[in-house]
Design a protein around this nucleic acid. Structure first.
Lengths: 243, 243
DNA sequence: GTCCAACATTGCCCCTAGGGCAAGGTCAAC
DNA sequence: GTTGACCTTGCCCTAGGGGCAATGTTGGAC
């Protein structure tokens, strides 16, 4: 008959682990010998291996315990197997990501975005605006790399249109205006007009076709820095919705 | 500027997780706004993604924290990558084991071992002996399946030799003798003689060539049930060592 | 016979990576 | 001004053990 230490060594766990399994009702408490030591039979080895196999597959101990009483043991095992496959796949994804990290590939921003930002200052945008744009693109690239470049190209393209560029500059300048200034109404209307013209259909606004919350996030980020901008955004949204 | 909830959603974690990272010094506490809310910049998104990538690779948070200050960041990443590969391999091993479990393939004993055990009773071994043999093989098959069949075939083969069979029977019968009985000395000597003859070189004793502790385990298991057997084992070991 | 190292027992607190809840304060919309 | 969704801190809880203490047992060496 085996002592707890022998049992544990054969299966490759600690004695503590075996005791925990007793305490949690996974492994029945064996008989004690005259000195109070637990004495295990061969059956316990087999059972312990079964428990460890499941535990290493990530099954919580409580579930392993209940598994014994379940009738559809096979179904449960199939479920566990599928979970395991998913875990392995996620680990491989993580490994890919990790290697990108190692290669220094998680740069903050692609070179063309950096160039674009430098361009903005030359075009007359304030440092504040450039800073906001910079943060905006960092977030987009970090959280949604698959659509970031499309969004960026669209945005960069928009700035080649002198009319649109003037509008963006006006938006930038409006930062310190009184939120009640009627000029904001006029500006909002011009922005809506240009936007609709550029995208034909308001449903085509970039970003809105994705299911993500990015546009909202970015907008609220921008709004937070100025009451006038918040007002401007409210006006624009209202008019776009009425279309 | 982002609130904690926004930051967390973009990266796909809970706000609690972000707070924990602050508390553990992984992520610097950002500025607070007038109402005491944390306000994050874009840099935090990037940093949080970096932390999550490492955390999902299984790197403990404490180590992620120290990783920033380490100069050989690349070495550490390579190490983590290797660990990840090992983890994936182990998970696949677990999955193989799990599938064997699902197929009911962890039977207690192969059919030929069961047949052998039934044979033993017919050959005159006591039920006690058969029981011990049974437990022994269960443990060997459960813990060392790769060598179990070899060991078993050797053992089964040994019993086809009438002389050896008589010795094993005598071992069985000695269970209830007085440990001081001089007959045990004689029996030990005969067993040593036969063993040496069977394996030519005492270094070839089955099981002893493996690095595992199985033989010792099994022997101590057997010894525990009888003072006479314990004595017999001591005598045999002593003589084998003197060879 | 005695001594020692290695084992066993129970009970307790500690750890990680967060989850969940409470008791409040805040924000934006209607 | 109320409602619902957010934020704050603080506290306790979880799984799966690790490690300690204080004590008892065992087996082998001298």
């Amino acid at each position: 008959m085996l002592t707890i230490g022998q049992l544990a060594r054969y299966v490759g766990v600690s004695t503590k682990t075996v005791r925990v399994y007793h305490a949690k009702g996974l492994l029945p408490e064996p008989e004690r010998d005259s000195s109070g030591y637990r004495r295990y039979g061969a059956q316990a080895v087999v059972e312990l291996i079964r428990i460890r196999t499941l535990a290493e597959a990530g099954v919580p101990l409580a579930r392993i315990r209940d598994l014994g009483t379940t009738e559809d043991f096979g179904d449960a095992l199939q479920q566990i197997d599928a979970d395991l496959t998913a875990r392995i796949r996620r680990l491989r994804d993580t490994q890919r990501q990790l290697r990108k990290l190692a290669a220094g590939d998680i740069r903050l921003l692609p070179a063309d975005v950096e160039r674009h930002l430098q361009e903005l200052e030359k075009l007359g945008f304030t440092a504040r605006w450039v800073e906001l744009e910079r943060d905006l693109w960092i977030i987009v690239y970090a959280t949604h790399p698959e659509i970031a470049s499309d969004l960026f190209r669209d945005q960069a393209d928009a700035l080649t249109d002198p009319a649109l560029r003037r509008l963006y500059l006006a938006y930038d300048q409006a930062h310190d205006l009184d939120p009640a200034d009627p000029y904001l109404d006029e500006l909002a209307q011009r922005i809506v007009d240009e936007t609709v013209q550029r995208y034909d259909d308001p449903g085509n606004l970039p970003g809105q076709t994705t299911d993500s919350a990015i546009p909202q996030l970015l907008q609220s980020t921008v709004n937070a820095s100025s009451p006038a901008w918040l007002r401007l955004d409210t006006l624009i949204r209202r008019r776009l919705q009425q279309l």
